[in-house]
Design a binder for these strands. Structure first.
Length: 258
DNA sequence: AAAGCGTGGTT
DNA sequence: TAACCAAGCTT
């Protein structure tokens, strides 16, 4: 849930989720529709489907027990390098580093001498650094502390170097030029009628929470009036969502997978 | 391997 | 207020 999402926003979903799906078994036996409805509002809906897939896999193949090593965890759907290490460390107290966006930012700032480009250290370098810096004991606390430092002090914008416990050895402490502003890169994300496609996808998914609709009715909800080109574009979006496993296409209607 | 993915709070 | 940002991952 916390992938690319603030923990503060996750907390309530986390508790609701565990109440509804207390075990891998219950999650595995639920429908994608249930899972997506419960996830609604958190964003990145594919994560919910992958979590569902993960639960099915862990339930049927691993007797509802997660593996404890990052290498094994990594094979599971939705589990990448970060999450594998985070679960290993925080759930099973395995002696491994963790590199999330906060820690990568800290490591970058801490070790960067050249302040021209406010580029983040590349992922492999960050992981090597984190591995090398890992203490012999209390790795759980170490990783938590770094993430908290990144979240509360060494923030992306306006880091509070004055209160930072490592400001005396940090290469970019108090350096405004470097710390002020992050890289400005434009996404140029796909859009239609000036609205990003992901916004449509979110609306569509929510619209289909409890009813199935044909393309025309979905279009009617999205736009006051629409053309055949709009229908064509929308059909493409819906088909992609079907491919993504978010929807199924019936004879005439689209719906969640019950 | 760069693009694409949700949403809501902050600056 | 438009742009940035967030316990990343998949294709």
């Amino acid at each position: 849930m916390a992938q690319q999402t603030q923990v503060s926003r996750v907390v309530e979903y986390y508790h609701r989720w565990l109440k509804k799906f207390p075990t891998f078994s219950t999650l595995a036996k639920s429908s994608p529709a249930d899972v997506l409805r419960e996830w609604s509002g958190l964003g990145y809906n594919s994560r919910a489907l992958r979590f569902h897939q993960l639960a099915k896999h862990v339930f049927s193949e691993f007797h509802s027990r997660l593996p404890q090593s990052p290498d094994e965890l990594r094979h599971l759907p939705g589990i990448g390098r970060y999450t594998a290490h985070a679960v290993a460390c925080f759930a099973f107290n395995v002696h491994v580093p963790v590199v999330d966006v906060n820690i990568r930012r800290i490591l970058t700032r801490y070790s960067t001498k050249v302040l021209m480009a406010s580029q983040m250290m590349n992922d492999d370098d960050a992981w090597k650094f984190a591995e090398r810096a890992l203490p012999k004991k209390n790795v759980y606390d170490w990783n938590q502390a770094l993430m908290d430092l990144g979240g509360m002090i060494c923030t992306a914008r306006n880091p509070n170097c004055i209160e930072c416990p490592i400001n005396s050895s940090c290469k970019s402490a108090f350096n405004k030029v470097f710390l002020q502003r992050q890289v400005i890169k434009k996404k140029n994300e796909p859009s239609w009628k000036g609205i990003p496609r992901r916004i449509y996808r979110g609306k569509i998914l929510k619209l289909l929470h409890f009813h199935s609709f044909p393309v025309e009715e979905i279009a009617g909800v999205l736009w006051k009036n629409y053309s055949s080109k709009d229908i064509h574009w929308l059909s493409g979006v819906l088909d992609t969502m079907v491919i993504n496993g978010l929807l199924i296409a019936g004879k005439k209607k689209y719906s969640l997978i019950q």
